[in-house]
Design a protein around this nucleic acid. Structure first.
Lengths: 192, 192
DNA sequence: TCCGTTTCTTGAAATAGTTCAACATTTTTT
DNA sequence: AAAAAATGTTGAACTATTTCAAGAAACGGA
């Protein structure tokens, strides 16, 4: 079975016919490393389900500094939700950290699917609920923990990402400089 | 019309009968200032819609330090989403910053309402989408801006909250100490 | 394999934010 | 109106984190 169908079925039941409708409304794309799927300023007209590889979304401040808002690896979704829902220019850039395969779904297709397969509303709600909880936890960590605590928690929660992604991206995700993360890693490794 | 019905109707259509079903499933409660609606460790079995007043949710760290996760004023919802959905002990305390009137809805009632009024799924999704976007913006601010920038943005976005809530709560929400916020306010007021 | 590019490390100096303690101000209660 | 409680201010010393600069290591492509 297609990974994305298995993913949907973890939340809601789908008939064979509905699976076909869904698959008819999406498109599979192969993305090369560093390819920019969404540049800041464009309206985000798709959401992407990562079947393999890794995408990330980031914001650039005036000084050109990058802040990673989200990583999406296998079996996760990414897109600029605000831009997508309100059809306003995106504040976030989305690009590939690795060569990836994604399932792309456009807003018109998604709106049509919500009509044809009403239980997708439930999927959308459940999916959004868990994204919200994850974001809230990350926000709480950002306002309440030191950089060292945040990194230790990150490395424990996502050991694979900690290996897989370059240090400067992890630092950006945690809201610290790459240099400081280097020092934190050195300190933690000397302890354990 | 009841404020909560007007609130729902801003997102989805409801028939008179559905309004009655909804109102039959909820309960109005009058809350006094400092009253604790949800203590950390309890399962959060309700969501609260604030009709008037202000509630807030916070986390206490080992040292007893408070970190405010959310304020909810008139026409906003609050609850510990993770605890509510997974029926696990809450990590967050919810209490009243002011005397308030809330509409309380229990999880069994909500589940039943999702069945009886299917378009509530859509409301749930839309509501969760905007909560997610707000949380993501706050997380981004926390990892990318200085305390002064975050406070200036807060005061501009929520001028009323900035007046209405004690400084130590705003500081906690922004992830800084009350003393430092005092210094920031002094500096900003001397500039403008 | 070698070269160029990207990523990581280290230290010193600077800045942002915290802590503590004492006192001032405002709000609430009696 | 006075007393008590809660909230806000200030400065000094401290800690966390950034910035910058220079070099080291790792990686990817001809």
């Amino acid at each position: 079975m297609q990974p994305i169908i298995a993913h949907l079925k973890r939340y809601i039941p789908l008939s064979g016919e509905e699976e076909a409708i869904f698959l008819g409304a999406v498109r599979t794309r192969r993305i090369r490393k560093k390819q920019l799927l969404l540049p800041e300023g464009d309206v985000c007209r798709q959401q992407w389900y990562v079947q393999s590889g890794c995408l990330y979304g980031y914001d650039l401040n005036e000084k050109g500094g990058m802040h990673i808002i989200k990583f999406a690896v296998e079996d996760q979704w990414i897109g600029d939700m605000h831009s997508f829902l309100c059809e306003t220019p995106s504040l976030m850039n989305i690009e590939a950290a690795e060569a990836s395969v994604v399932i792309e779904i456009s807003k018109p297709s998604l709106d049509e699917l919500y009509t044809k397969i009403p239980q997708l509303e439930r999927f959308g709600r459940l999916n959004m609920e868990s994204a919200f909880i994850a974001m809230q936890n990350r926000m709480l960590a950002a306002i309440s923990q030191t950089a060292e605590e945040r990194y230790a928690a990150f490395a424990q929660q996502f050991p694979e990402l900690d290996q897989r992604l370059p240090q400067y991206m992890i630092a950006s995700y945690l809201g610290i400089t790459a240099e400081f993360l280097s020092k934190i890693r050195k300190k933690l490794s000397s302890i354990s």
